[in-house]
Design a protein around this nucleic acid. Sequence first.
DNA 1: TCTGCTGGATTGTTCAACGATCCAGCGATC
DNA 2: GATCGCTGGATCGTTGAACAATCCAGCAGA
Lengths: 232, 232
Amino acid sequence: MASADQEVNEPAGLNSARARVRMRVPSVAERVAEELRYQLAEGFLVPGSKLTEATIAEDLGVSRNTVREAFAELAGERLLLRQPNKGVFVATLEAGDIHDVYTVRRAIEVSSLRAGGSPERVAAVRAAVDEGKRAAEANDNEGLGSANQHFHGAIVALAESNRLNTIMAQILAEMRLYFHKATLNAHFYSDWLTENERICSALEAGELERAGDLLLAYLNRSEQQQTAIHGA
Amino acid sequence: MASADQEVNEPAGLNSARARVRMRVPSVAERVAEELRYQLAEGFLVPGSKLTEATIAEDLGVSRNTVREAFAELAGERLLLRQPNKGVFVATLEAGDIHDVYTVRRAIEVSSLRAGGSPERVAAVRAAVDEGKRAAEANDNEGLGSANQHFHGAIVALAESNRLNTIMAQILAEMRLYFHKATLNAHFYSDWLTENERICSALEAGELERAGDLLLAYLNRSEQQQTAIHGA
DNA sequence: TCTGCTGGATTGTTCAACGATCCAGCGATC
DNA sequence: GATCGCTGGATCGTTGAACAATCCAGCAGA
């Protein structure tokens, strides 16, 4: 969600009149969690593979306890699965998980969209649509995927709710993990583009009910497609 | 959520034909987290108070590292707030938090209710309503509160989504923490009872749209009341 | 009154250790 | 040959101790 690099080379900022935002230096455990999140999203760690505490600790040059703390965080986000006395594993798609994930998305995305949002938030949705168009013109499959995630994230952001935003961020992280590059072909993307465009237009026109219906239909269709590819 | 006592005095069960459910002995860290959750829900730990690692570790007779792990879990559930190098504190109600919480509830409760559910799940909703009635007759304020929580939990359970259930459980835990006994008077409860009854009846009658509207109106009203009591 | 230092307390992180648990392999038994 | 039971190794769960980093309150001095 945020870039990896941490810019802490500007201590002069402390002397400004009001140093309101405390420049947070993430703890080691958080950085480990961030690194693992990155590797999960990027597909370096495939679902089902085992993560040994000692190995990760050595690879990243941190203590085993610190790795444990990171594991606990990621397990809370459902990205890792902890099996007592056996180890932690990259989460795998269980039966019913697809329906489960889409149930959550239907609830929070449609609800957020139907309630509308400030002009700035609506503009953010439009920006995500444009981002997708540009990626399509550039034949950038990777970019198309993240643009689509930005689109749905922007829809939830309409509600201005921190809790909904973090829930959605976790759901999107799960989807990145499960439905990785292999399952994403151009067919899906072209579908997204036109659909996102229509939803965004309806939103901008204030036709919230219709926008919600479109989004709901899209999510149902997407669930069917994913279910067809992976198991139930 | 579950009772504290763990019954592990029946090793004979292992000899049965199919020992399907592995009797899980919660780890020490989980038990610590459970104990803290209990104390938070019960109001022994008031919002804003500080929890010192060493103190908790000594009180519960566990290691400081184990307490840390429990803290991390509860911080992930927004029940505790971690301030780097300062300590962990019981979460307090920040500006906008009430609206935030109710935004989540509107999204997932109304969505779940509008989609209906299996007869068993609907019966569970009815059971929660009855539980509230019995508590009212017995003048059991404590029981009324938990009955209401069961009611709203049962509504979300209609959707048969593990993820939605855990989200709702966390939200309810937050509300127990924030809106504790002090803020709960008989006035609120009587309102709940009749409203829950109407919603449940509409659900049973299959009038899902109307049930959703009733729930939505109730949540809006409840948010206004809570906002009036606590700050914005 | 404001500034800057200092000491104590607490957290962040590491390390080493030990028991508990799981798993694979291997031999013994029927 | 298949099943059972054992055993050893690997890994996890938890502990205790240690040390650096950070924060905070109090105090001295300008």
